[in-house]
Simulated scan of single mutants.
Amino acid sequence: MSTATPTRAVSPLQGIGLVAEREIMSKLQSRAFVISTLVLFALALAAVMFGGFAAKQTSDTPVAVTSDASAFVANIPGLEITTVDDRAAAEKAVSDESVDAAVVADPASPTGFTVIAKTSAPDGLVMQLAERPTVTLLEPDTTNPGLRYIVSFGFGLLFLLAASTFGGTIASSVVEEKQTRIVEILISTVSTRTLLAGKVLGNTVLAIAQIVGMVAIAVIGLIVTGQTEVLTLLGSAMVWFAIFFLFGFILLASLFAAAASLVSRQEDLGSTITPITMLVMAPYFLVILFNDNPLVMTIMSYVPFAAPVGMPVRLFLGEAQWWEPVLSLLILVASCVLAILVGARIYDRSILRMGARVKLSEALKG
């Protein structure tokens, strides 16, 4: 009497598609996921709009200036100048509080002028009027420091939120299926590696969709607020960010799923995915603290876990050569393939082992 060998009902590609569809639909049917995504989009739009309107707001200081003192303030930015006839008219404007201060010619003053204020000296204006030596910069900044920080913060935060959210989703899903033994039913139809591939694919689609949505919102916000120059500078950097994020997330998702397969309870999940979570958080803090450090940013550009943040920021700042993103992407793709192979090995040899946590060395050895 012979025993028939069970056969799987679907091909690997069909299985990957079915598992990916299951992952996507389960998230889209989750009210918490939909609401959190909409809130995230709303916050992103509000941040871009606020930044644009704040940049448009002028904080010019109203100053009264006599005609014979106009030369002293001619090249000072940030002043709303009102020309008056003489010192008496300047003093009246200050007294009426129609201006914050006045600048009048004064031959007796060492500087040739006098600043008139009502109750206290306007420190900002005085500092602007102070004589300063000519400064020659050998390596001047090509990007506004404030804009550099905002863009670095944006790329870092976007990567952190998307990678941690969907990476955590994959890990929780793996443990839930293992704890409820649903995985035993699933692998009766598809192989463990097909199941892993479907999970990674489904969550990658969701993560990329969220990234594209955030980028679209940023573009719309920049256009509405008239920040077309910033949009022009960000264009290529955002495209590269999406490409790098795709492979970077696949790498991390494979590791999240593999780490989750080592445990059988949700309570034990935190201890296994903490190292991977640290890898996700590291680029965010590094780019915030060292966005003005060329050496750190260059190293980040070639480290697979940090490249999705480091390289787009350097491209935006104009600090990367044309060949650098290509080389960095090749390194990331190679690391991604390695992570998939290692992750699939761990997942395949741990997903059906219940009870105590499976040691990493045991999972690798089989």
Results as ranks from 00 to 15, higher is better:
Ser98Leu: 12
Pro140Thr: 05
Thr134Asp: 14
Asp268Arg: 06
Ala54Thr: 07
Leu161Tyr: 06
Ile150Lys: 03
Ile187Cys: 03
Phe290Ser: 01
Ala334Trp: 12
Phe155Tyr: 08
Met311Lys: 03
Trp322Ile: 11
Ile223Arg: 15
Asp268Ser: 13
Thr136Lys: 11
Leu40Pro: 05
Glu80Gln: 14
Phe241His: 04
Phe50Gly: 12
Leu231Phe: 11
Ala253His: 04
Val313Asn: 00
Ile250Pro: 00
Ile288Cys: 13
Ile150Val: 15
Thr58Tyr: 13
Lys178Gln: 11
Ser254Met: 08
Pro77Ser: 06
Asp268Tyr: 08
Gln29Trp: 14
Val337Gln: 02
Ala339Ile: 04
Glu267Pro: 12
Arg31His: 07
Pro12Ala: 04
Val126Phe: 10
Asn75Met: 05
Leu138Tyr: 13
Ser191Pro: 07
Leu79Phe: 10
Asp68Ser: 06
Ala162Arg: 02
Glu229Phe: 07
Leu327Thr: 10
Val190Met: 06
Ile170Met: 03
Val48Gln: 00
Thr61Leu: 13
Val239Ser: 08
Phe159Trp: 11
Thr66Pro: 05
Asp123Trp: 13
Phe155Arg: 00
Ser59Ile: 09
Ala32Trp: 15
Val174Tyr: 02
Trp240Arg: 02
Thr274Asn: 10
Ala339Arg: 00
Pro107Glu: 09
Met300Gly: 01
Gly221Ser: 07
Ser328His: 03
Phe33Gln: 04
Thr37Tyr: 08
Leu246Thr: 08
Ile208Phe: 10
Ala64Glu: 02
Phe316His: 02
Asn75Ala: 10
Thr7Met: 15
Leu269Cys: 06
Asp86Ser: 03
Phe241Thr: 00
Ala46Asn: 14
Tyr149Asn: 12
Ser271His: 14
Ile185Leu: 15
Ile211Gly: 02
Val174Ile: 12
Leu129Asn: 07
Val263Gly: 00
Gly112Asn: 11
Ile170Lys: 01
Ala32Ile: 15
Arg132Met: 15
Thr119Leu: 12
Pro294Asp: 06
Gln266Ile: 09
Ala218Glu: 02
Thr7Glu: 15
Ala258Val: 05
Met127Glu: 15
Phe113Asp: 04
Arg22Glu: 13
Ala258Thr: 05
Trp240Glu: 03
Gly124Gln: 10
Ala44Gln: 05
Val212Met: 14
Ala42Pro: 11
Leu231Val: 10
Leu255Lys: 00
Ile220Glu: 09
Phe285Gln: 12
Ala162Asp: 07
